[in-house]
Design a protein around this nucleic acid. Structure first.
Lengths: 236, 236
DNA sequence: ATAAGAGAAATCGTACATTGTTTAACCAAA
DNA sequence: TTTGGTTAAACAATGTACGATTTCTCTTAT
């Protein structure tokens, strides 16, 4: 049952909101991934005719995809001058993980008070897989880690907050995909997850919240350090 | 100098992000206002040809505006079935004010530590106008109140958080425009603002943050109560 | 009463026209 | 020759029109 595909990270149910489901990989997703993954450079111009050619469609779908991306903040528009890639830089990453530090503790506290035995079993199962994988396959780790947190936030009544978390998560996941985990970070992730499960079992909502704040903070700092190192390597 | 127009609420500089500036009132703004103000009913179908006719354009601009609204969460899409108005209901309002309760204290704490004498003078000036108006013109109060908080969040380094605040603020402002302030709420607003200024002067970041949490919480509850009352009146 | 089907209506994609912006060439003057 | 400004041509964004495909609706037949 515990197939790998179980953990293909996917939005908490009812979150989708984008309905980007229409066809295989929608134009929206393709362009967004190009931005997040850095294949489209920061501040690069997004010329509709080029994008249309590249993706084998006409300009209209491209224009709509760009507007969608604008609404989500990945693209900026200048009247009569078209669209540009909003840079996914250190500021961007810092901004969204700081928001996570503020929001996720609240989601976590709620979860601790609402967790069922099934939830806890699921957390432990995923944590087992995370430890089994032990960062050997970093992509798999990323998927599992996302699944872990999704279990907690999935059913939260505040759909907006959960959706916000998910969108930010997707960005951070894409950005951090290029980096490896430091040994210190690996240890922290494992121990914090274990500690979190203990808090959930004990029903310590506040402790769990504070722990998650540290967890998100640490994750964010880790990503930023990698970005800084890479930029320094480029500049030097 | 202190003309009313000074306080036409406008986004913190550099926030715009949408660039909806192109022409007087863009299609995007028109449709969004129709949704927020309730002129377009919850879950109502948004037929592009109708909207195009109504606003005197062709379908393409409408389609793009709808995609933009989709990205911002005001509209939902179903493949081959078009768009629908996402309901601005009690859940929606609760969701976004709860997020405000989490985010605004952090913005406020930062402001307290960074506030200049000019900032404080500006806060006091606006507060003076608020008290002068004393809820006589509720629209003007809304503008002034927004300006008050904008002074605090305007220059925050986390542009994402500030932008998020602004978008939520716009929604809440539009929703609450239909309601009057209860006497209790009026008193609370005035005293909380005064207390906030005192905290800023004294440099009490934490106290100011906690106060803002209560302030936002109170504002949200106030709006929700009005919504409940209206719904009850409709149902009864 | 339910199911099937024909017709209407709306979405989605393509092609085209218009308008505004950018670029490059050209000329005049220092 | 270089510098500055002017103009024109290429380019791209924005808006319009239309055709193809899917969904919705109303009618009809079993």
């Amino acid at each position: 049952m515990a197939e790998t595909s179980d953990f293909k990270a996917q939005p908490p149910e009812g979150i989708d909101a984008i309905g980007a489901s229409s066809e295989g990989a929608s134009l929206y997703q393709l362009i967004r991934d190009d931005i997040i993954e850095g294949r489209l450079a920061a501040n690069e111009r997004l010329v509709v005719t080029d994008l249309a050619r590249r993706h084998g469609t006409s300009t209209n779908p491209v224009r709509e995809a760009l507007q969608l991306l604008r609404g989500e903040g990945f693209v900026t528009f200048f009247p009569n001058r078209g669209a540009r890639v909003r840079p996914i830089d250190q500021d961007f990453v810092r901004d969204i993980y700081e928001i996570g530090v503020l929001i996720e503790p609240a989601l976590t506290r709620w979860f601790v008070n609402m967790a069922t035995v099934e939830d806890i079993a699921e957390l432990e199962r995923i944590q087992g897989l995370i430890e089994e994988n032990n960062f050997a396959d970093t992509f798999r780790h990323s998927e599992l880690d996302t699944a872990f947190h999704t279990v907690m936030y999935q059913r939260h009544y505040n759909r907006h907050a959960a959706e916000l978390w998910w969108k930010h998560r997707e960005v951070l996941r894409a950005v951090s995909r290029r980096f490896n985990f430091t040994l210190a970070r690996r240890a922290a992730i494992l121990s914090e997850h274990r500690e979190l499960i203990a808090h959930v079992k004990a029903g310590n909502a506040n402790e769990a919240g504070e722990l998650i704040a540290r967890h998100v903070e640490g994750s964010g700092r880790h990503i930023l350090e990698h970005m800084r190192a890479r930029n320094a390597a480029r500049a030097g």
